[in-house]
Design a protein around this nucleic acid. Sequence first.
DNA 1: TCCCGGTGGTTGAATGTTCAACTAAACCGC
DNA 2: GCGGTTTAGTTGAACATTCAACCACCGGGA
Lengths: 153, 153
Amino acid sequence: MAAMTRWLDPDEQRTWRAYLTASRVLMDTLDRELQREAGMPHAYYEILVQLSEAPGRQLRMSQLAQAAGSSRSRLSHAVARLEAAGWVRREDCPTDRRGQIALLTDEGFATLAAAAPGHVEGVRRHLFDALSPAQVDQLRRISETLADHLTGS
Amino acid sequence: MAAMTRWLDPDEQRTWRAYLTASRVLMDTLDRELQREAGMPHAYYEILVQLSEAPGRQLRMSQLAQAAGSSRSRLSHAVARLEAAGWVRREDCPTDRRGQIALLTDEGFATLAAAAPGHVEGVRRHLFDALSPAQVDQLRRISETLADHLTGS
DNA sequence: TCCCGGTGGTTGAATGTTCAACTAAACCGC
DNA sequence: GCGGTTTAGTTGAACATTCAACCACCGGGA
């Protein structure tokens, strides 16, 4: 049996459209800035950030995929590129012969350190500067609720 | 001279991370659902939606790109695919010989009509069901503020 | 020990997206 | 109506992502 579709009311429509537009433009803008200033897309930047914050600047591929919000396949391809750029190195995992460890090279760290100020400035200018402190708080709660809801189900 | 970087404080960090995660997971989820159920990515769905709401179910390529939040190049490629699928047709613009008009075919409209209930249900389940009415309102204001800020600058 | 389901990771092909270069036509000033 | 500039749209190549298939290894049980 086909249940009735719960359509969006005008307010929800408007919210959904506004959200779509805003998030798309925001990410496009940051992505373009990062590509121009650091020569890498935002997804690659995320990978370097996660590695830089991990103990020993290294992570198992699976954990890195998890942390960076990447599929395993996507990460494999991405790390291959990052390795070719000299920013990441792969090593065999000593405790699990299936495993691979990705580790951030000094060069990768330097590249990240050079890119970070510009990127943070972009996030501030395009996101935080536009919102009141109360809205920032609301956005945090909404995002955390949403993330829980999505990963929980 | 190099200005001091205005780094993110811990609250902002947390907000930014939560936002990144939530929006990525949300869009990934909806994209996968749409791909599975309708055989097209969300960006293509958006194009069909915009055409379906335009008078005469048709739009100039540039306006369509604007409405769907696509670059002109991206739209060209996308419409080529949609045309091959039989969902969109191209026609010459009578008033501007450079122009092309994209128009939604009956088949495209039928495909959209078939995909819409499932997609809307997904948006509701993954987004609106998780938020209180107050949060939905907050999200709308935040998104509209943000969109204004980004397109205004 | 042998098998077998599950996990870790890679690969290639198909698909999307971006970027820069390009054609053609409209617009504008003279 | 000529010449330069802008606008509309397409194209191909490089790059990124997805999907399904795959191999290798782990762990647990008969």
